[in-house]
């Protein structure tokens, strides 16, 4: 099909946009010979993940402290479960962090965006799954801990003798589950969701 004579010269205009003076090598940048630096987006995600690991370690230290001072066998059992749980979560986070760090910057754009998206979705699944387990376990341990302190009893097993109180604790825990799910969604929305949306937009635009 014949092109109109008045057609804008795209290539000519593009070539004429050459900078009059080519930018100099950035002064602030210092090339490093170490491992590949993660992409800016990945660095933000890694910061959140490192913060998650640090939080998990602090909580574990607190549990270990309570474990050392409590005489209650129920609390000791609950805390051991929590420590094991936190250790498992931290160990599970390490390969996710490592994989995210290893996303190659020199991939074609589509593959790069797809891989990042996959990593973020894996993280989402991990976060949702573990939050679903972590909350009831933490809540029930907290219930026994609070109950022991509140009742001024050295042994939390006295709470087992009070079925009404026990059922109330369980009921409150279950009633709070929807809130926890909402909180988990809120955290996702304000951390990874925007990144995921924009990567999806890129992939859609690439077609």
């Amino acid at each position: 099909m014949a092109q109109p004579l008045s057609e804008f010269d795209l290539e000519g205009a593009w070539k004429s946009a050459e900078p009059a003076e080519a930018p100099a090598r950035p002064a602030a940048a210092t090339p490093h010979a170490g491992p590949t630096m993660p992409a800016p987006l990945v660095r933000s995600a890694l910061r959140r993940q490192y913060a998650g690991i640090a939080f998990s370690l602090v909580i574990t230290a607190f549990y270990l402290y309570v474990l050392a001072v409590t005489p209650s066998w129920i609390l000791r059992g609950g805390i051991l479960v929590l420590v094991a749980f936190n250790t498992a979560v931290t160990l599970r986070m390490i390969p996710l962090v490592r994989r995210l760090r290893q996303v190659r910057m020199d991939q074609p754009i589509r593959q790069f965006a797809e891989q990042l998206l996959l990593e973020f979705r894996d993280w989402h699944r991990f976060q949702t799954y573990w939050a679903g387990i972590a909350f009831p376990v933490s809540a029930m341990t907290g219930f026994f801990l609070g109950g022991t302190i509140g009742a001024q009893e050295p042994d939390a097993s006295v709470l087992l003798m009070k079925p009404k109180l026990l059922l109330t604790g369980l009921g409150v825990t279950l009633a709070m589950m929807p809130l926890v799910v909402r909180l988990s969604r809120w955290m996702w929305k304000h951390s990874y969701q925007k990144d995921v949306n924009s990567l999806e937009t890129w992939l859609n635009d690439l077609g």
């Binding site: 800016p40 790069f112 924009s198």
Partner: peptide, 9 residues
């Protein structure tokens, strides 16, 4: 890829 991830930020 760098610009893509900077844009996301």
């Amino acid at each position: 890829n760098t610009l893509l991830t900077m844009q996301r930020k």
